[in-house]
């Protein structure tokens, strides 16, 4: 780890004033579950680290009418245990691996964390190249993307992203110059070059909160091999508007299968006007992966994404206490 300046602002205003306009100069520290590894591996070598944990306005879950405002510092544990957030989101937070990460890791950190791609973490850049050639298509791509078509093949590491997109949530970003809001879906970016970040956050901005509309039928299912700390192999989050027993509208978003959370309109379309049962859920899963292009070692993830969609759908229509 390289030396750095540590700043501990007490307000959002102080914090944003400490951020640089260029990536690489400053990093924001919340739970630190990702940033510290990045700094130890010298993938990130910020000159200044801005701790935002002492900023009270970034904490807490607040209900406002039919919406819930979730502060960037809310931990995965708080989110998983909150009765105020839709099931898909609580389930996604509960699925974050390891009690330690759930305890320390924050909503903002989950959305801003860097890809877990092992080539990226060994210093080959976001697009993972060596001597200008991409490493992933012919390399160890068992955990990599089955959607997106390159040149980025990492998978978005966010556990909450797919659920937030399925729930049509919005995200609030604040800089010294002002604030903006955008749909979570627009927050994730498929980079075409190594200089582009995989998220829409600008280097001088802080993610302050998420605004989530209420939802009655939603769920998240993740396929993960280990119970112990392990990243999901594929996930799916779904949110349904029901008309009686049939689906009026649906949003179906897969995770860990593409450089961004991957929404499938085809899967949603396959469900509309139908009840959710084993057969329709399976058909939706099939539709969800119709456009997948697996790499040399990750064809199995197509099956995992398909079954994650099916199981999330079946879970979403289960009655919950």
């Amino acid at each position: 780890m390289q030396n750095f300046e540590y700043a501990n602002p007490a307000s959002l205003q102080q914090a944003t004033a400490l951020l640089a306009a260029k990536w690489g100069e400053t990093d924001v520290l919340a739970g630190g579950t990702d940033l510290l590894s990045l700094m130890k591996e010298e993938i990130h070598t910020p000159k200044r680290v801005v701790n935002i944990k002492s900023i009270p306005e970034l904490a807490g879950i607040r209900k406002a009418g039919a919406q819930v405002h979730i502060g960037a510092l809310v931990t995965m544990d708080e989110l998983a245990g909150s009765g105020d957030v839709p099931h898909a989101l609580a389930a996604a937070a509960a699925g974050v691996p390891s009690p330690q990460i759930r305890h320390m890791g924050t909503v903002g950190g989950d959305l801003c964390q860097r890809p877990r791609c092992w080539y990226f973490r060994q210093g080959h850049g976001l697009l993972a190249t060596k001597d200008g050639k991409p490493l992933i298509p012919n390399g160890e791509n068992q955990y990599h993307a089955i959607f997106g078509g390159g040149p980025a093949y990492f998978v978005s590491a966010s556990s909450l992203g797919p659920a937030l997109i399925a729930l049509n949530a919005r995200i609030k970003l604040v800089s010294a110059k002002g604030s903006r809001e955008l749909p979570v879906k627009e927050f994730f970016i498929q980079p075409k070059d190594d200089a582009t970040r995989e998220i829409a956050l600008r280097p001088d901005e802080i993610l302050t909160e998420i605004i989530v509309p209420a939802a009655t039928h939603s769920s998240t299912y993740e396929v993960r091999q280990r119970e112990a700390l392990d990243w999901p192999l594929a996930t799916a989050s779904v949110a349904l508007s029901m008309k009686g027993n049939t689906v009026a509208a649906a949003r179906i978003v897969m995770g860990h299968v593409a450089p961004t959370p991957w929404e499938s309109a085809a899967a949603a379309k396959a469900l509309v006007g139908k009840p959710v049962n084993e057969e329709t859920a399976q058909a939706a899963g099939k539709a969800a992966v119709a456009g997948a292009h697996p790499l040399s070692h990750n064809a199995y993830k197509v099956q995992l994404a398909k079954v994650a969609v099916k199981r999330a759908l079946l879970d979403a229509v289960q009655a919950r206490a």
Partner: peptide
């Protein structure tokens, strides 16, 4: 990784141990 000659999971994150 045959391309780089390196071990990709020289850690305890992707070198997975049972919990």
């Amino acid at each position: 990784d045959e391309q780089t000659g390196r071990m990709l999971n020289a850690d305890m994150e992707f070198y997975k141990l049972a919990g």
